[in-house]
Nucleic acid binder design. Structure first.
Lengths: 164, 164
DNA sequence: AAAAGTATCTCACTTTTAGAGATACTTCAA
DNA sequence: TTGAAGTATCTCTAAAAGTGAGATACTTTT
């Protein structure tokens, strides 16, 4: 059971990734651009639009690469930059109708699909599933934070940590 | 609830992806190489070693790019090619001890993490979670198959399908 | 034994990325 | 105020990674 759950988690992630990837390619976007678009959308939905720098951090790419991502998305008309801020260095990123349409084409079918699966579960079961996934996310985040930590500086006796 | 489950699913996928990505970079691999390594490992565990072509299909990259992936992984000593087959065109891919070590460093901590979360759930709850995730995977696969279908050939009256 | 099919690799070209500044703005402290 | 330091984004060049069209070597079919 343990083993099969671990497997299912990874599998679901990969499958979802693959669906997103296929969709993106169908619409002339690469994986990074698609992820960026999703992040920009989520942020704007929360009324906390992303800045270029935040996007860079979330994507895990360099600032240079991120500027290129934004350029590409802006060029094809999915988003626009907004420079009207009290801090005039900042640039926030915003959706255009075209991107809304694209998001609909992606999340619509996917939502229907999820609904169908969910309809086979009781409210209580769904609540368990939800709790489990959120717990996993929290665990991932903690692990991620540990991984991202700058490697311990080369001091006399670094606390014996081995990774091949 | 519905909305938050959809969110949790996507979030878990992204978080997992990010952990994998960070780990890969820490070890001098890019995302594609890491995915390839995982696929090769899984296949070999099942005693059905991947061929180059199968890897290409699973990764969703061109054959040329896949040759490059294999070259990189072989050069640093993670895998080796095997050409001893009845069909002498085929090349199967196999793990080296170095890659086993790397896999251990990745899946070890991740497994521990998952165990910790799972320990907070009853067997029955875990079974529900497992079933749900497998159901989702099946749904994804069906959706993926539909997406991958070659676009309907340009016939007189294509059944009005609009995607921006 | 020729023709067609399959599996992998090679090569030229394009796209994407990293990384190091450059630029423009803000904040802090004297 | 003014200068110094910090921050946010963008620009540039070199390197990495990917595509797509063949080339090569082998197998299967006719």
């Amino acid at each position: 059971m343990r083993r099969s759950i671990v497997n299912a988690i990874r599998g679901m992630g990969l499958d979802g990734q693959r669906v997103a990837d296929t969709f993106a390619h169908r619409h002339g976007l690469n994986n990074t651009d698609m992820r960026a678009l999703t992040l920009i959308m989520e942020a704007e939905m929360r009324h906390e639009p992303l800045t270029a720098g935040q996007l860079s951090a979330k994507l895990g790419t360099s600032t240079g690469a991120t500027t290129a991502v934004i350029d590409r998305l802006e060029r094809v008309g999915h988003i626009h930059r907004n420079r009207d801020h009290s801090d005039r260095r900042k640039v926030t990123l915003h959706f255009e109708p075209l991107a809304m349409q694209l998001a609909g084409a992606y999340f619509g079918p996917l939502g229907a699909l999820t609904d169908e699966v969910m309809s086979r579960y009781s409210t209580q079961e769904l609540s368990t599933v939800h709790r489990f996934m959120e717990d996993m996310r929290a665990a991932y985040s903690a692990h991620q934070a540990a991984l991202s930590e700058p490697e311990p500086p080369a001091s006399p006796a670094p606390p014996e940590q081995h990774a091949p």
